[in-house]
Design a protein around this nucleic acid. Structure first.
Lengths: 198, 198
DNA sequence: CTAGAAAGTCAACGACTGTTGACATATGGA
DNA sequence: TCCATATGTCAACAGTCGTTGACTTTCTAG
């Protein structure tokens, strides 16, 4: 007899997962508008009608495909002068690590021309990034600081992975993380050095 | 009599200009895909067929709407320690100055999901930005430097004007330009400080 | 084995899109 | 005045899209 509590992986679960995986890939590489329900179905090797049956609509599918966790490291356990580099390294691990098929590249590709995706990016920033930074830099400068950090990290991802600007693509990962790490470090915990006047 | 050399502003020229202006506005605020030929025609108060007659196709209209000149200042005539701030100020003058209706916001909005727009951004970078930077920093580091500068400037525009991340929107323009100016300055002309190892 | 639910297939609808061609009107030189 | 050309209008085509409902196949509980 088939129990009902210990949910077995029914066949429908596999199909569901296949659709979601196909959708993530296509949304990531083509964006929301250029990805058709028929494309997703073809990649998942099922009928377009199934996509709608399983997820209700293209929008709901997108909303599910987008969900994910940044899994930011606990910055309070990182040496203070390594915070910038740690953050930069973690962030580009999300883009260039083993499991690349998550919501971040997907959101980035669609956010510029899709208000739902833009709102999701703002939400993710507000719930995951801002608090992590606010815990380190004090409430007064926290917002501005978080905005600056986000602009640098998102900007490099935009150049390197979205529009593929040659020098940003060619830059070795280590050098990029080092440069961005210093910038972020300076935004978050500026030294007494005071870049300009002594 | 109507002369033919000193081109008078015929009526068709006005219509053409009206179409182009309407197209720029809509492409900028909605991106390429969400802007329909019918939208443009409605905004220009003419028939959709005229848009095609005047510009051949939606793609050709987009290609024309996108053309523009960054008008970068001559960095060699700027005090070396003011290069970063000058560049940042000029760049955000393009976004927030009086004449905002040009190709840059337009490209940014569409580049993530439109290969033509992405290619145009790469071309603009290669022809206008990279040379200006290469003239200052020497060919060895020029490419990497230009990539870093672009990532920071484009990233902030993305946060502030495209997805409208609250802290990036709220940041006063002066403070933003100061912070970004320092970062860019450091990318282009790092002080003797030598960030890490000597 | 068998009835019924789950899973999958198929064709079509209605809306929207870029684009076209046939037609009407206006303009300006002869 | 008249005609050629420039300019503008209108309806429709062909294609694509998300979505739906009717149908068939597969699986499994009783």
């Amino acid at each position: 007899m088939t129990q009902k509590k210990p949910v077995k992986s029914k066949k429908s679960d596999l199909t569901r997962a296949a659709i979601l995986a196909a959708a993530r890939e296509l949304f990531t590489s083509q964006g929301f508008d250029h990805t058709t329900v028929r494309d997703v179905a073809a990649k998942a090797k099922i009928d377009p009608a199934m996509v709608i049956r399983y997820f209700g609509s293209k929008d709901e599918l997108f909303a599910l495909a987008v969900e994910f966790d940044l899994r930011l490291p606990d910055l309070s356990k990182v040496p203070r002068d390594a915070v910038g580099a740690t953050l930069a390294a973690h962030y580009f691990g999300l883009w260039e690590g083993e499991n690349r098929n998550h919501g971040l590249p997907l959101l980035m590709r669609s956010a510029a021309s899709n208000e739902f995706a833009a709102a999701k990016m703002r939400e993710m920033f507000g719930k995951q990034v801002a608090p992590a930074i606010a815990a380190l830099v004090g409430p007064a400068q926290a917002a501005a600081c978080a905005g600056l950090v986000a602009s640098q990290l998102l900007g490099m991802a935009f150049c390197r992975h979205i529009i593929k600007l040659p020098p940003a693509v060619a830059m070795p990962r280590d050098a990029m993380i080092k440069a961005l790490g210093q910038t972020i470090q300076n935004y978050m915990l500026p030294r007494g050095i005071k870049p300009s006047e002594p």
